[in-house]
Amino acid sequence: MGMNDWLSRCPLVAILRGVRPEEAEAIGEALVGEGLAVIEVPLNSPEPVESIRRLAARFGDRALVGAGTVTDPADCARIAAAGGKLVVTPHADPEVVRAAKASGMLAVPGFFTPAEAFALLKAGADALKLFPAEAGSPAVLKALLAVLPRGTMLLPVGGIDAGNIPAWRAAGAAGFGIGGAIYRPGDTPAIVAAKARALMAA
């Protein structure tokens, strides 16, 4: 399935920064139970590849599971071997995009300028992450969509919460990367489920 298929199921990408392998499945259950379909474990979390392996084994048929904060192209093979199907970067590196695609995964690299966006699409990006979204605005996203190829999916990430989702959505955002507004280290599955419900309503 393509990125479009997953985002049409649910436009929210849950970013589980700091999640530990032993809690990953319970948190995943809470998210999938609320209808989320994309789960990202940043590589600066404790034992991230093990968390990805557990999440992919348990939810791989129902959710797109992958890694965030990927900065080294060499990590892509490890992520794919663990069952990950998604690579998200914080920066505009076409090499990571190419490595992710070579490993058969979807690539959603971070960008902030039109030049970066076009270079990443040329490298094979499946969607683009506007990061940090706090430094931009829905108006910036709308202007980018006017010049990027038709059908380009832009996902603002950074400071996204239930309060600002509607404005970004109206500007044409295809989805949203949600970090602290959906999971912070120490959150129980019940807390995560409640946060997910509020975000889904938005």
Rank of each mutant, 00 (worst) to 15 (best):
A198W: 03
I52R: 02
R17V: 11
P73M: 02
G104M: 09
E50R: 14
L130Y: 00
P149F: 04
L128T: 04
E34P: 11
F112S: 14
W6S: 00
Y183D: 10
R20K: 15
A37K: 14
P114A: 04
I160W: 02
T89I: 13
G2N: 15
V192M: 12
I178R: 07
M200V: 15
I191Y: 01
A135S: 14
V38R: 06
E40Y: 03
I178T: 03
G68K: 11
R78D: 11
E50G: 04
A170H: 04
I15Q: 08
F111E: 06
A99C: 12
A14D: 08
A174R: 05
T69V: 13
K85A: 11
F112I: 13
G2K: 14
R20I: 12
G66Y: 03
A171T: 02
S45G: 09
A167P: 13
A162E: 15
E134V: 14
G158F: 03
K129I: 07
G18A: 12
V192W: 08
A80C: 09
S103Q: 15
Y183A: 01
P48G: 06
V13L: 15
A24E: 11
M3R: 10
V192G: 05
G179T: 01
A99M: 12
E116D: 13
I178P: 09
E23S: 15
A56F: 06
V108W: 01
G159D: 04
Y183M: 11
A67Q: 12
A139H: 10
V19A: 08
A143Q: 12
D5F: 04
P94L: 04
F118W: 10
R184C: 12
A127L: 08
Y183N: 10
L7R: 01
A202R: 09
C76S: 03
L145E: 08
E34M: 09
L145R: 12
G151V: 05
M3Q: 07
I27V: 15
W168T: 03
R197N: 01
I178Q: 06
E47H: 13
L144G: 02
G35A: 02
G68R: 11
R53W: 03
C76Y: 00
G18S: 12
V147S: 02
E23Y: 06
E134Q: 14
